[in-house]
């Protein structure tokens, strides 16, 4: 028993180590940027500074993961931003009411899971292309957010805002928790089958993997992460805004692609997406700190995304048609 458990643990961690390989280069780049940022802004190394930085990073990290999961499943989601908005307005309208913080948070999560699963079911069961379904879903979800809260308002209990977006690095701890949860999900049969379902659904189905379930579950998990990002954004601002999530759709795709997640399914890892979001987030912070005008942010962001995608073309020329 103990011997078996030992080989099991050894196998598990060996597998994890190997998976780090691909993200290593990107993590180095992100670390270099982080070091530059710390050099420019030594306050980063204090608890408060680190807390602020992790708060600015967390929502992007969550949506990048949400996007990466769907991309690994072989799709893409254009509804991420709307889901973030929905999460934010549900949190801002329910938490101060009779449901309380716990009830409100539960509601945010349930809605995220349910809406995500519904999108997944339409894509997987009815065979409609993910990009079109999530495009339509972005209208429906965005509309629902407007119904719940037509204009910015609502409230998040002050103590919750202080807890999540105060001077303590709770955001960083939350990110660690999410990563641990994701790891445990990947250690379940349905979670690990996601990679096979994304890369080669027919072969995975023939091997007996739960292909449809794995893909629908991926959409559900993605919805959950997106609405939770919305909850956090609402806590940051102290209120809800029905269009606050809009920018996240594009940024989530950018971060995931930057992190090496492929469009064809089964390619890339969550650690890549997180590293991609870290890089994007640090970059924005550094430029902001150096006093670049917002124009430069957009331009630099555009160039970096294209550069990251195009780079392999120049470094590793592949042969073969």
């Amino acid at each position: 028993m103990s011997a078996a458990a030992e080989t099991g643990a050894r196998l598990y961690f060996a597998v994890q180590r190997r998976r780090n390989r691909d993200a290593r280069g990107l993590l180095l780049v992100a670390a270099a940027f982080l070091a530059l940022y710390a050099y420019l802004f030594p306050g980063l190394l204090s608890v408060g500074g680190f807390a602020k930085f992790s708060q600015s990073w967390l929502p992007l990290a969550l949506v990048s993961m949400a996007q990466a999961i769907i991309m690994i499943a072989g799709g893409v989601s254009l509804a991420i931003g709307a889901m973030v908005s929905l999460g934010a307005v549900i949190a801002a309208t329910s938490m101060a009411g009779p449901l309380g913080v716990a009830g409100g948070a539960a509601l945010v999560m349930i809605v995220g899971l349910a809406v995500g699963a519904a999108c997944g079911a339409i894509v997987v069961r009815l065979g409609l292309p993910a990009i079109v379904v999530t495009l339509a879903a972005s209208f429906i979800v965005g509309g629902a957010a407007l119904l719940i809260l037509p204009r910015p308002g609502g409230a998040i209990p002050a103590w919750l805002s202080d807890l999540l977006a105060g001077d303590t690095p709770v955001a960083a701890a939350l990110l660690v928790a999410v990563v641990v949860l994701w790891k445990s999900y990947l250690a379940t049969p349905i979670g690990l089958s996601l990679y096979s379902a994304g890369e080669n659904p027919v072969a995975a189905y023939r091997a007996g993997a739960p292909v449809d379930a794995a893909r629908i579950a991926a959409y559900a998990a993605s919805g959950l992460l997106s609405t939770c990002a919305g909850l956090f954004v609402a806590a940051q601002t102290g209120s809800g805004d029905p269009v606050i999530g809009e920018a996240f759709t594009l940024n989530s795709i950018a971060a995931a692609v930057l992190g090496g997640v492929g469009f064809l399914g089964g390619r890339g890892a969550m650690r890549g997406a997180i590293a991609g979001s870290l890089l994007l987030s640090v970059m924005i912070n550094v430029m902001y700190f150096l006093g670049f005008p917002p124009v430069a942010h957009y331009i630099a962001q555009g160039l970096i995304i294209v550069g990251a995608v195009a780079l392999p073309q120049f470094t590793g020329r592949r042969s073969g048609a």
């Binding site: 594009l250 692609v257 160039l303 995304i305 294209v306 995608v309």
Partner: peptide
């Protein structure tokens, strides 16, 4: 990615 980056730009 290309057109998204272009839009951002």
């Amino acid at each position: 990615i290309m057109t998204l980056a272009m839009a951002t730009f």
